[in-house]
């Protein structure tokens, strides 16, 4: 009952959930079991590819949807080899990566800073939340026309689109992370002599870190999603542009190459963010 009546001091212990989950997973599975699971995952990929190969090579027609124009995995693979050998792959990859990381980095800085401010200061909440709430439901794709009008180059407008795509998940998770900090931790810190600045750096930021990192991982996914859409409309290089160009040139195998490259890039950059996050929050790992 102690703090139940002080709303600013009261917040559920958001810590408990991940920690409990970590404790539950602490029993390390045997190597054999782990190898078995990876085999199963590999088998799943193989079955998926085999089904695709079957559907496209037999030009499977299911009444409503048809595989008649879908290139087979073998065609896609040979297209990929051609693209890789042509020297065009790297420029496409390079421009996409540069746009994503620029837009994403801006979104990370702005999203985390705004999130901390909004969650900690009522004034910031009242001043910033209304316009942000209004802009939040607008999909980043809907920003494309305006972005083209606002920015001097297509390059800048695409970076802006990836920024918008990553901003909101990062911002919202930062706010949630701060809100979920157990108020008793802040109370304890003050009783131990911490000042506002110490509270921010020693309690609020590490306390919100797991949620902020979740937001950063989600934001990485959405920023790829938005980038590719933006590139389809206004790019000259980039994986999204490559995919769209392949469609206009009717190189169907190249379309799928583009799609898969996007998938792999998105997946590996999200995994990288999660990996960095895990290294930054060692207390969440079972030890």
């Amino acid at each position: 009952m102690s703090l139940a009546r002080f709303p600013r001091l009261q917040r559920a212990g958001a810590w408990a959930a991940p920690l409990r989950a970590a404790a539950a997973g602490a029993a390390t599975p045997s190597l054999k079991k782990l190898a078995g699971r990876w085999l199963l995952r590999l088998a799943s990929l193989l079955v998926f590819t085999a089904a695709w190969q079957y559907a496209s090579s037999t030009r499977l027609h299911l009444g409503f949807v048809t595989f008649a124009n879908v290139p087979s995995p073998a065609d896609v693979f040979s297209s990929f080899v051609t693209l890789a050998g042509s020297g065009k792959l790297l420029p496409h990859l390079g421009s996409s990566l540069a746009r994503v990381f620029l837009g994403y980095a801006l979104a990370a800085v702005v999203g985390v800073a705004l999130g901390l401010a909004i969650a900690r200061a009522r004034l910031a909440e009242d001043l910033l939340m209304p316009p942000l709430e209004l802009l939040r439901p607008i999909p980043a794709v809907a920003w494309i026309p305006l972005a083209i009008l606002m920015f001097p180059s297509a390059e800048a407008s695409m970076v802006f689109i990836t920024f918008i795509g990553a901003l909101f998940p990062i911002l919202l998770n930062a706010i949630l992370g701060v809100a979920g900090i157990d108020s008793r931790l802040i109370a304890s810190a003050r009783s131990l002599g911490a000042k506002d600045r110490d509270i921010l750096f020693e309690v609020v930021i590490p306390g919100a870190a797991p949620s902020i990192l979740t937001g950063l991982a989600i934001g990485m996914g959405t920023s790829w999603f938005c980038l590719v859409t933006a590139e389809m409309i206004s790019g000259q290089f980039g994986v999204g542009y490559y995919t769209w160009e392949a469609y206009t040139l009717q190189n169907y195998a190249d379309i799928v190459v583009g799609m898969l490259v996007i998938g792999v890039l998105g997946m590996s950059s999200s995994a990288a963010v999660r990996q960095i996050g895990r290294a930054l929050t060692p207390w969440q790992a079972p030890n």
């Binding site: 212990g13 157990d182 931790l185 304890s188 020693e202 306390g207 870190a209 207390w283």
Partner: peptide, 9 residues
């Protein structure tokens, strides 16, 4: 506090 309230990090 009853809930220990140590800094988990």
């Amino acid at each position: 506090f009853q809930q220990y309230s140590l800094f988990p990090w």
